[in-house]
Simulated scan of single mutants.
Amino acid sequence: MTQPILVDVPERLQTPRLVLRAPRPGDGAALNAAVLDSLDALRPWMPWAQSAPTLEASEAVAREAHGKFLLRSDLVFSLWLHDGQGRETRLVGGSGLHRIDWSVPRFEIGYWCRSGHTGQGLVTEAVRALNRLAFDQLQAQRVEIRMDERNTASWRVAERAGFTLEAVLRNEARDVAGGVRNTRVYARVRGVEEAAASGGGA
């Protein structure tokens, strides 16, 4: 297996409405504003959204994500609207390929959307782009999306993006309040939702 740090991963993807870009130093202010706008909506689902972050904390998050991207241990992408020419205009959320097992390869897509930009299909657009990155360029065998069963908006994104519900894992994890939650598991896999690899290789 190729060492993960040697895997070529594009730091920028463009869709009709979005630029998906790896975080970099200096992104903290834009990230901070997006999170502060969205705290009330994110708080029930995201452990990192329980209190308002400082500018310094958001800059640290951006720099840590930048480092992990370079190491290929976690591939975070910020979601930016663009002006039609690819110039970034507004940070509207985050997504990425997480919990990576390069030996398979297997990835998990996570996502959040800035308040005021939900219900527009932006996250679904990003998920489809990341799914294509995983299968077409990173030779994925499996891509998962997991969420609290009560997070209806999240699992509807997975279904719109063409992921198959595989299971509802009962009492599988703790929620942000410390209670026990059920987890919905969606996936796309090589040879089922995605075309089999040519020549039988991974």
Rank of each mutant, 00 (worst) to 15 (best):
H82M: 10
H117A: 05
W155I: 11
V185Y: 10
G94F: 06
V123K: 07
M147Y: 09
A22V: 05
A57Y: 02
E172Y: 15
E88G: 07
G28P: 03
A62F: 04
G67C: 01
A187L: 07
S58W: 06
R184D: 09
F135T: 06
P44Y: 04
M1P: 00
L71H: 03
D175T: 13
R150T: 14
D40N: 13
L6P: 00
P47M: 04
L20E: 01
R190K: 10
V168H: 12
L55N: 13
V76S: 06
E172S: 15
P25T: 03
T152A: 13
R170S: 06
L13W: 01
Q85L: 13
G200H: 10
R128S: 10
E64G: 06
H98N: 12
A158I: 11
V127E: 03
D101P: 00
R87E: 15
E194V: 14
Q141T: 11
V185P: 07
A29W: 11
A30Y: 05
L133R: 02
E11S: 12
E159N: 04
Y111P: 08
Q50E: 05
R188W: 09
E166M: 08
D27L: 06
V192W: 14
R90T: 15
D27M: 07
L13R: 02
G84F: 02
L97G: 07
L79W: 00
R87H: 14
A52L: 03
L79S: 11
A158G: 10
N131T: 15
L71D: 13
F69W: 03
D101V: 01
R72T: 00
S95T: 15
A177W: 03
V192F: 15
T89S: 12
G121M: 02
V127S: 08
Q139D: 02
W112A: 09
R128P: 07
A158Q: 09
D74M: 00
L91S: 01
G191A: 09
V180I: 11
Q139A: 14
H117Q: 14
A197G: 12
E56T: 13
Y111F: 15
T183E: 10
R114L: 07
A52P: 09
G199F: 02
R190I: 07
R24A: 13
D40P: 09
A60T: 10
A52N: 07
G94A: 12
P44A: 09
L13A: 02
R174N: 13
A196Y: 12
G96A: 07
T164M: 09
F163P: 05
P16Q: 08
F69Q: 02
L20V: 10
W45A: 06
W48Q: 04
Q120L: 15
D74T: 05
V157M: 06
D27Q: 05
S51Y: 08
G93I: 02
Q139F: 12
W102P: 01
T183V: 15
K68V: 00
I100C: 06
W155K: 03
A161V: 06
N151L: 08
D136E: 13
T118A: 14
E88V: 11
G179M: 04
P23W: 03
G26T: 05
T124A: 13
R188Y: 10
R87D: 15
R142P: 04
P4R: 01
L70P: 01
G116C: 10
E159Q: 15
L79G: 04
P44K: 09
R12H: 04
I100D: 02
L6V: 00
T152W: 06
